[in-house]
Design a binder for these strands. Sequence first.
DNA 1: ATCACCGTTCGGCAATATCGAACTCCTCTG
DNA 2: CAGAGGAGTTCGATATTGCCGAACGGTGAT
Lengths: 249, 249
Amino acid sequence: MGETIQSVERAAAILRLLASGPRQLGVAELAKALGLPKGTLHGILRTLVRVGFVEQDQATGKYRLGATLLHLGSSYLDVNELRTRSINWADALAGRSRESAWIGTLHEGHVLVIHHVFRPDDSMQTLQVGTYLPTHASALGKVLLAYDPYGEAPAAPLRAYTKATLTDPKALEAELDQVRTRGWAAETEELTEGEVAIAAPIKDARGIVVGAIGIRGAVERLASDGALHMEYVSYVRDAARAITRALAR
Amino acid sequence: MGETIQSVERAAAILRLLASGPRQLGVAELAKALGLPKGTLHGILRTLVRVGFVEQDQATGKYRLGATLLHLGSSYLDVNELRTRSINWADALAGRSRESAWIGTLHEGHVLVIHHVFRPDDSMQTLQVGTYLPTHASALGKVLLAYDPYGEAPAAPLRAYTKATLTDPKALEAELDQVRTRGWAAETEELTEGEVAIAAPIKDARGIVVGAIGIRGAVERLASDGALHMEYVSYVRDAARAITRALAR
DNA sequence: ATCACCGTTCGGCAATATCGAACTCCTCTG
DNA sequence: CAGAGGAGTTCGATATTGCCGAACGGTGAT
């Protein structure tokens, strides 16, 4: 691939910086972070404000992400084929398992959540579409890593979210081997205390894994006697197979 | 405000075009739409692909929006103060009214949905965060128009979504007058047959309307005897006032 | 009152993005 | 089966374009 356009790449870097934290950033902060003159950044920011990708705080003059990006992001969901074709199955999975259902795909070393169905009869949950999950500490992530055609290992060191998080790369590799032989992944309290997740791979027409679907819920319900309840695993695998079939056509 | 950077503005125009429809677009199509040479567009597209804002279809070579935008969009939600401060109140409103709750803000002539709580005990709904509603045919939109500090009228002609949609600018202006005097807006089957909505304004510390909150549900429940049930109106107005108070601090 | 730092402006320089023609595939057609 | 047409891509000359750094005006803390 050839050259890229400098100013566009810089604009993207600004947006990623603004998205990386909840704080608003000023011109000077951005200039220091990117190693560019203030004047240069101001010109790009002025343009980003004009197109609505960035908003400027009237009081402080600092910059934050703009509303247009929210709309563009939701447009991405409309275009995304995996999501469009699997929404119905995720609903069915959530209904059958009575747990929240999730669909994710690998993106820049994280699991990007592209669909999320709330657990039935429990509406007070926050929506997670568009957020990242860690690959090494989520069932979706383990599936995506295990079947990743490029086989890129997650960046060490592996962060420990709970005491149960797999932080040893060798332990993770052994886990991924198991995922590959079983055809599904589990995660028990490795991301959040008290929560368990199960996931299985979704393949496209060529047989390549393009995403994963799974459920997540309280350990008391999904693994009450210390071991996973296998009927949930079959729910998840059924849903994954159904979506895979739908994508094959 | 001074000059803008050409290439960044063009990149934004490309993204908006790609978001405007579910179809993937080719270099030639974009070139015709924007009136630019193919080579120029290709350079910008190559950069947008590199930063993940755009993805290219392997088979056809056409372009579509990329996953990074989804993540940026969800980051916007974290930053947005109106949303952060009003999520709890929206949950409460949905719980009390037993209808779906919505929060929207004015953006480029549309109502941008920044929060959406599903109706309790009915999880099979699609999430609308990030989508646009028409200003003249939604309760949220009427509120936002009525209190818009710039007072920009919606672009004529007003599209008719149902037989009840207000398409006459004068009728809409009369409606907005009523909204201003009552302090809340209603919309009965003007957007979707069988659905009714109620909304009230949210003000910031300076007293300027920055958003609207409301509910939406079946006409049988919200207006069973032909007239709106006023207890729902008070639920909505209570929530709006509570958020306004929260923003004042 | 002073200072430090903020976002913003401005003009000269040259690096930079633009443009249009040429190229390679691919697909549809006669 | 040959050809035409259209797709996405490449490339190098051109001058337009955006970059830079210093200077400006405001704000808030010391």
